Amino acid sequence: MATHDRGLVKSQVSGVTVRALTRRFGERTVLDGIDLTIPDGQFVALLGRSGSGKSTLLRALAGLDYDVAGEGSLRVPTKTSVVFQDSRLLPWQRVLANVLYGQPRSRRDAGVKVLSEVGLAGRENAWPGELSGGEQQRVSLARSLVGEPDLLLADEPFGALDALTRIKMHALLRDLIRRHRPTVLLVTHDVDEAVALADRVIVLDEGRLTVDIPVDLPGERDPSLPAFQHIRRTLLTALGVAPVAV
């Protein structure tokens, strides 16, 4: 069964298919005939300069930008969730209620379980204001996964966190993806983050996808590995940044 919203099609199949997607803001073309396929279960990181259209593409896939959907075709899973850079928690709701927002009451046990998975067991009745920024983003991740989505869209979810917290969140996200196995599109400005997390990295430049690189690295993806550095240099060059040795 499929549901339609202009050019956006939500169906029971997993994975993402985008064809000839264009988005204009007045005279400016932000997305210019984008074609993209993400197979079921793949983790893709999307890089690009500020204003390149990364978040515009993500919003189209999330069904939050109908003008984009109206100028191309998109097929995404019905069960899609989004996690943003800020946690967007409801301050008047306790942690578990935030996780279960929009979910049926029957998902309560699932909410408790996923809070444990993100390291917040026993914090179900805490208020968002009692949590650190990293803890709030853990709640946001729990909320995005409690409904077992087939597609997880992440718009710079760790961009506001300090460097050490980001490293911890990277490890957490890898673990959560192994557990829940959604297809993932991660928008990020951080090349190292993209290479550390994704199965594949793509670059959006002047409205078009210009680079598409598989990331086939073993283990915990040590940034000092030559293969990691090779991919990093390729991506930095594509972004117009002079690579810096690590």
Rank of each mutant, 00 (worst) to 15 (best):
A2D: 01
T3Q: 11
T3I: 09
D5I: 13
L8A: 02
K10M: 14
K10G: 14
Q12T: 11
V13A: 15
G15Q: 06
G15W: 04
V16S: 07
V16T: 02
R23V: 13
G26R: 13
V30S: 00
V30C: 06
D32E: 04
G33Y: 03
L36C: 10
I38W: 04
D40H: 10
D40M: 02
D40I: 06
G41E: 01
G41D: 04
Q42A: 15
V44D: 01
L47H: 03
T56A: 06
T56G: 03
L57M: 07
L57Y: 07
G63Q: 04
Y66Q: 09
D67T: 04
D67Y: 06
G70F: 13
G72F: 12
P77S: 12
T80D: 02
V83L: 11
F84P: 09
F84M: 05
D86L: 14
R88I: 01
R88V: 04
L89F: 12
P91N: 01
P91R: 02
W92S: 12
R94K: 10
A97V: 13
N98E: 00
Y101R: 07
Q103T: 05
P104G: 10
S106E: 04
D109A: 13
A110I: 01
A110S: 10
G111L: 05
V112H: 12
V112S: 02
V112C: 08
K113P: 00
L115T: 06
S116P: 00
S116T: 06
E117M: 07
E117Q: 15
V118F: 04
G119L: 07
L120G: 12
W127D: 00
S140K: 08
L141A: 06
L141D: 01
L141N: 09
R143P: 00
S144A: 15
S144F: 08
V146Q: 03
E148M: 12
E148V: 14
P149D: 02
P149Q: 09
L152M: 08
L152D: 08
A154M: 15
P157G: 10
G159D: 07
A160S: 10
L161E: 06
A163S: 11
R166K: 14
I167C: 11
L173W: 12
R174G: 09
R179I: 02
R179F: 09
H180N: 15
P182C: 12
T183Y: 00
T183G: 05
L185D: 00
L185V: 01
T188P: 04
H189K: 13
H189R: 09
D190K: 08
V191A: 04
E193C: 11
A196F: 08
L197P: 02
L197H: 08
A198N: 08
A198Y: 10
V201A: 13
P214Y: 13
D216L: 15
D216Y: 14
L217I: 07
L217G: 06
R221H: 04
D222C: 01
H230I: 08
T234D: 08
L235N: 13
T237D: 09
L239Q: 09
P243E: 00
P243V: 02
V244K: 12
V244E: 11
A245D: 14
